[in-house]
């Protein structure tokens, strides 16, 4: 099955994340990652969903059935900037430290914590580069790993500004209830 990167603008209401996740699951598609956060418009969140599916247009159409989903785009073949962050706790006793530090330098990774036998490093890049970095440091011993999942943004003038879709919001968004 092909992997697709879908970017969705959704109304920021309680439960919207479980609606999206539940829908993708029950329609039989696998979510590889899902990242969500505020967009440039108050009341609107932006999600990046990576799904495995041979029928991505069905995923997109089904997502549109959700009342709170405003705009969905499959950006898999669009020119995008894709980023992911990984935070790793590495086994790094004094003897290995120097090597780990220089490896971090090569990948532009930041060392954010140093313990007696461990180091926490943070690295941001394309998902492929993140993958690559993880493989390179794996031999030192990964004690903990946390990845954010992919976020994607379409390059250039294309893409969607969230404020285009909230014409009914009052002057400062105050007149419409947010249902929190």
């Amino acid at each position: 099955m092909r992997k697709h990167t879908i970017v969705a603008l959704v109304q920021d209401r309680p439960g919207v994340l479980s609606r999206v996740a539940g829908l993708v699951r029950r329609r039989g598609y696998n979510i590889e990652s899902l990242a969500v956060g505020h967009s440039e418009q108050p009341g609107v969140s932006r999600m990046t969903i990576v799904v495995e599916s041979d029928h991505v247009e069905q995923v997109v159409k089904q997502l549109y059935r959700l009342i709170e989903v405003i705009k969905v785009s499959d950006v898999t073949t669009d020119p995008t900037v894709e980023r992911e962050m990984v935070v790793l706790k590495l086994h790094a006793p004094a003897a290995a430290r120097h090597e780990v530090v220089s490896m971090c330098g090569v990948f532009d990774a930041k060392i954010v914590d140093v313990g007696t036998s461990t180091m926490i490093v943070e690295m941001t890049g394309t998902p492929a580069k993140v993958e690559n970095f993880i493989e390179v440091v794996r031999p030192y011993g990964i004690k903990e790993m946390m990845r954010t999942g992919r976020i994607a943004m379409v390059r250039g003038a294309r893409g969607h500004n969230a404020s285009e879709y909230v014409e009914s919001a009052g002057p400062n968004g105050a007149t419409v209830p947010t249902l929190n």
Binding site: Q11, Y64, V69, Y165, S168, T175, P177
Partner: peptide, 9 residues
Amino acid sequence: DQKLNLPGY
């Protein structure tokens, strides 16, 4: 009199 706020519907 609140207007419907349903940009996705």
